[in-house]
Simulated scan of single mutants.
Amino acid sequence: MADVDKLRVNESIRADEVRVVEPDGDHDVVPVEEALERARDHELDLVEIAPDADPPVCKILDYGKYRYEKQKEEKRRRKKSKSMEMKELRFRPRTEQHDFNFKADHAREFLEDGNKVKAYVQFRGRDIVYKDQGMDLLRRLIERLQDIARIDQPPQMEGRRMTTILAPHKNK
């Protein structure tokens, strides 16, 4: 949106000669006064599209409409690039089935909302000897969510945590 506001229009164009692009697609290099005259004949504006070109490229168009279209396009682009959040779920090696189900349901909600889920098993003290239970727990979670999620990072140890990251399928 800011780029559209920086464009030079009509009398604010500083070049002596410009490459003018007519509404019908014809283009040629003319003095800026002649280009402005052509724009007035069409009852449109002369807009400097490529100021760095030699000579600068100007287009004859309705500046208000052009600005509106660019703003709409920018808004659509921002809407599409929705930022993805990372949600975290913490388990212990001996997490009970009810708690596991409850957290798995939360993970499903996060993934359906388009967020990534970082699930980890926290090992405290002597829990570290139960790494196999932690791996089993994360595998069960992945298996349960495989219909809506893909593995972004497989289960691996990070210090005293076993971590995995799940991301929603791209087709959603």
Rank of each mutant, 00 (worst) to 15 (best):
D28M: 15
P31H: 03
P31E: 02
P31C: 00
V32W: 05
L36A: 01
E37P: 10
E37W: 10
R38D: 04
R40S: 07
R40F: 03
D41N: 09
D41P: 02
H42V: 10
D45L: 00
D45W: 01
L46A: 00
V47P: 04
E48A: 03
I49S: 01
A50C: 14
D52T: 13
A53D: 09
D54W: 03
P55W: 03
V57G: 02
C58V: 08
I60Q: 03
D62H: 06
D62V: 05
K65Y: 09
K65F: 05
K65Q: 13
Y68K: 14
E69G: 14
E69L: 13
K72N: 13
E74Y: 13
K79G: 05
K79Q: 14
K82A: 08
K82E: 08
S83G: 13
M84H: 08
K87P: 06
K87V: 09
E88K: 12
P93H: 12
T95S: 00
T95F: 04
E96G: 14
E96S: 13
N101P: 04
K103A: 07
D105R: 15
D105E: 14
A107S: 08
R108S: 09
E109S: 13
F110P: 05
F110G: 02
G114Y: 00
G114H: 02
N115I: 02
K116S: 15
V117P: 06
K118T: 04
V121T: 03
V121P: 00
R124A: 10
V129I: 10
V129L: 08
G134P: 04
L137I: 06
L141I: 07
I142K: 08
E143S: 13
Q146L: 08
A149I: 06
R150P: 14
I151G: 02
Q153I: 14
Q153G: 11
